[in-house]
Design a protein around this nucleic acid. Sequence first.
DNA 1: CCATCACATACCTTGACACGTATATGCTGC
DNA 2: GCAGCATATACGTGTCAAGGTATGTGATGG
Lengths: 122, 122
Amino acid sequence: MGIFWSVDSAFSIIAEPNRRAILTLLVASEQSVGELERQLRMTQPTVSKHLRVLREAGLVEATVDAQRRVYRVKPEPLLEIEMWLAPFRRLWSTHLDALERHLDRTHRSVQRKPRKRQRKRR
Amino acid sequence: MGIFWSVDSAFSIIAEPNRRAILTLLVASEQSVGELERQLRMTQPTVSKHLRVLREAGLVEATVDAQRRVYRVKPEPLLEIEMWLAPFRRLWSTHLDALERHLDRTHRSVQRKPRKRQRKRR
DNA sequence: CCATCACATACCTTGACACGTATATGCTGC
DNA sequence: GCAGCATATACGTGTCAAGGTATGTGATGG
């Protein structure tokens, strides 16, 4: 019998900004650990540890090339996110105005907090 | 001058399974806190705290109705995720076979860890 | 063999966060 | 006004994850 355990979802893997950065680099083209390290300005152990998490989640795979390990993306686990988003896409198409305003705001690096958050009804 | 601060991204908000559950319920129809509490089997403070996080991230909004607060989804922040996923969708269409296998596996509740993870190249 | 390169892992510390219990707030009908 | 309901918040606690430093491992060239 094999060893079984719960794989935590792609959502938590992707929550980490550095891991998203790694994936974004890898989706352009495969890269070695050292190349990622230099582009991302992270220490080498940090890169390796994130790659380990991504590997165990099935989001990347590695190929040995001499002393290097070349990583590339395996996008399948992202399907969980893609599918979860489906019901919300329906809403976007019905709220195109708010959507545009949102895109405007998020092009600034910072947002204002809404002071009052409730309006009356009934 | 308004009050400014960094809004953490929709990715980390969505990483929490209970928050995803709340959003999934709300996208079907708006609900009060008590209704969410009962359907999700969570304590009331837990629901309220998750709703607070979602509110401050702009993912839900509330309407006051007597002593109740009725929450509904504001899907715009999810656009960040939608846009980030874009380059990976390209890969899905080129790897339909691996994709199918992945969908098969994820319909079981548990997965086996790959024992060997590297193959030779060159 | 041995030094070195590329990468992985161990160990430790720190900070964030999710939950529970208890309590506060605010509205309502009587 | 007051009791009671619906929701929010405060506070304490445990867990877990991310980063840094140090060290292990394995392949390569000389």
